[in-house]
């Protein structure tokens, strides 16, 4: 959020040439690091929110020109179409390995990976654990919506017990499908992981808390403290089979009781 006396800097405003009296009073708009394009996400999807919070953080920390992002495979695969800074793609799950390569070559850059639950907690489990364990000085933004959105709503490692998905049509059966994975808690025991926090985006208050967490994680990297990660509980109304408003309620009442919100580890 901008204070009312701040000068506006978004592309959006420049293009639309808002008259001066309006400009002076604009207190909230699209951050500079976010491209002024429509995103492909479904209505009520949490990805757009997290994209914006990353951009706001980058702008506020003044690091846009030295940030390098790594986009995942999953719904956020084309995140580079929405971010206005250097971004590379990565193979599914290998996002932290790619980020490691970039950061080791350019330690002065601010490197972050953006991953979903399939990317990070299933196919990329080895990479995330070992990247954290090496204490790589990177930031990971982990969006946990408990389902594979891109491929049609299959079970994710983080899908809750009993949750109906495309591959758990009668609900996740713990005997057949195993248990929901609390990867953040697993990572807490790693000495290389310095800052770990779980947040949510189901209400404005939680969005603001997520913003603070993301900023803290990036600051951890800027201060050379080591590996930082924020897990964000996000809505997937399409594959949860409910409205965005009910999806937000589900995080509040159900998801966040299994995946507790809060700082898991802080240096």
């Amino acid at each position: 959020m901008r204070k009312s006396n701040q000068k506006p800097v978004t592309r959006n405003q420049k293009k639309k040439k808002i008259n001066k009296s309006q400009v002076e009073n604009l207190i909230f708009s699209r951050p500079r690091s976010m491209r002024d394009v429509e995103m492909h996400y479904c209505a009520g999807c949490g990805h757009g929110l997290v994209h914006r919070l990353i951009c706001e953080t980058i702008d506020e920390l003044g690091i846009r020109e030295r940030t390098i992002g790594v986009a995942p495979v999953g719904c956020a695969v084309i995140a580079y179409d929405y971010w206005d800074f250097d971004v590379t793609e990565a193979a599914h799950g290998r996002t932290p390995a790619v980020a490691t390569g970039i950061k080791r070559v350019r330690p002065e850059s601010i490197v972050f990976s953006y991953q979903g639950d399939g990317d990070l907690a299933a196919i990329g489990t080895a990479e995330i654990i070992h990247t954290a364990n090496r204490g790589e000085n990177i930031t990971v933004i982990f969006v946990n919506n408990g389902v594979y959105g891109m491929t049609g709503g299959q079970m994710a490692p983080t899908t809750l017990a009993g949750q109906v998905t495309d591959t758990t049509v009668e609900g996740r059966n713990l005997k057949r499908d195993g248990y929901p994975l609390k990867i953040l808690e697993m990572m807490a025991v790693l000495p290389g992981a310095k800052y770990l926090e779980r947040t949510s985006v189901h209400s404005p208050q939680e969005v603001l808390r997520t913003k603070r967490a993301i900023k803290k994680a990036f600051q951890t990297q800027i201060d050379n403290r080591g590996f930082s990660m924020v897990e964000v509980l996000a809505m997937c109304p399409t594959y949860w089979g409910m409205s965005p408003i009910k999806s937000a309620d589900r995080i509040k009442n159900e998801v966040s009781t299994f995946y507790p919100i809060g700082v898991v580890k802080s240096y």
Partner: peptide, 19 residues
């Protein structure tokens, strides 16, 4: 009141707030 709650929660970043 310009509290911006609507803009903060908007997943598509399409709300501008003026005060």
């Amino acid at each position: 009141t310009g509290c911006s709650m609507c803009a903060i929660i908007c997943p598509d970043c399409i709300i501008q707030v003026y005060r």
